[in-house]
Write a protein that binds this DNA or RNA. Structure first.
Length: 286
DNA sequence: CTTTCTGTTAGAAA
DNA sequence: ATTTCTAACAGAAA
């Protein structure tokens, strides 16, 4: 689940819950999840506080009060960041544990405990995600690997056209390339291309200005809508306030292979493009 | 049982 | 320089 809208949701939820709480302990169940030495990681974090949380693409950036450090958190495919206070869960990842189930579970690889006895769990079934402490001064090296975001003020159709120009790769693989455009993952790439009426395996350089513009508009619309609906996709997530976020009901092609296209009635197909499962309507998308 | 698939991406190979 | 493929891992589905 964690693409830009999901990470944005997690960031906002965490901001209203863990900021300025003192960390009293850090448990490392699976030390390799943390890219730093375990002893150094604990030493820097215990007694410290999270003072701000931001995001670039799908990467969370947590500012620490002391030490001039930043904590980077990437959830990759199955990572979760779940805050638990007095039995209530807030924020998430690809799916939250069922309500009533308890944490930690067997996938809780890093656990932060705060002075008010609340906890922040980093869970990850496949263990692709990671946490990493870096010096503030090294942030630039990290952000250099990220391209423009769909909702960034200076993202324009011309910019997208520039990215597509001269490239022979399928348009979908460019939408997924974080160095070019940050935040779009497999679900939203398919949804954006459906909304734009463009086949995922079209060579980027073959797209007309009109098609580029449609992809531009669709990317902004869909990412904004997904954020509005808390980006929730395949889960039964309910947050502490009882709000259900479910972007899954807006999905037009993702996971709908074999079903009827909402727009034209043709059968939605699934193939592989750029090594990823790819869903599209062969009638609506050209 | 084995094989294939899965929301990511760094890094190698082509 | 760009594009494609694979590995990292665990578990569900076929």
């Amino acid at each position: 689940m964690p693409e830009l809208p999901e990470v944005e949701t997690i960031k906002n939820d965490l901001k209203s819950n863990v900021i300025r709480k003192k960390i009293v302990s850090v448990d490392l169940g699976k030390p390799r999840i943390v890219k730093n030495r375990g002893s150094e990681f604990k030493k820097q974090l215990v007694g410290n506080e999270f003072i701000d949380i931001s995001r670039i693409g799908k990467l969370l950036i947590i500012s620490l009060k002391r030490g001039g450090l930043l904590l980077l958190v990437h959830l990759k495919m199955t990572g979760q960041l779940i805050y638990c206070h007095q039995g209530k869960y807030v924020a998430g990842g690809h799916s939250l544990p069922k309500l009533g189930s308890s944490l930690p579970n067997k996938y809780s690889h890093v656990i932060f405990k705060f002075t008010d006895n609340s906890k922040l769990f980093f869970n990850d079934l496949r263990q692709f995600g990671y946490l990493q402490l870096i010096k503030r001064g090294d942030l630039k090296k990290v952000t250099n690997n990220y391209g423009i975001e769909p909702l960034q003020f200076n993202f324009k159709p011309e910019r997208l056209a520039e990215i597509f120009k001269k490239r022979t790769a399928p348009v979908k693989s460019l939408l997924l390339n974080q160095k070019l455009i940050a935040g779009i993952g497999n679900i939203y790439a398919d949804e954006v291309l459906f909304a734009a009426g463009v086949l995922p395996d079209r060579q980027a350089k073959s797209l007309s200005n009109k098609e580029v513009k449609k992809i531009f508009v669709a990317s902004q619309k869909i990412i904004a809508l997904a954020i509005k609906h808390r980006g929730t996709t395949f889960n039964d997530y309910v947050d502490a306030d009882g709000n259900v976020g479910s972007f899954v009901k807006f999905l037009k092609v993702y996971g709908r292979q074999g079903k009827t296209c909402f727009r034209c009635g043709a059968t939605v197909k699934k193939t592989k493009v750029a090594g990823r499962g790819t869903h599209f309507c062969p009638e609506c998308q050209k």
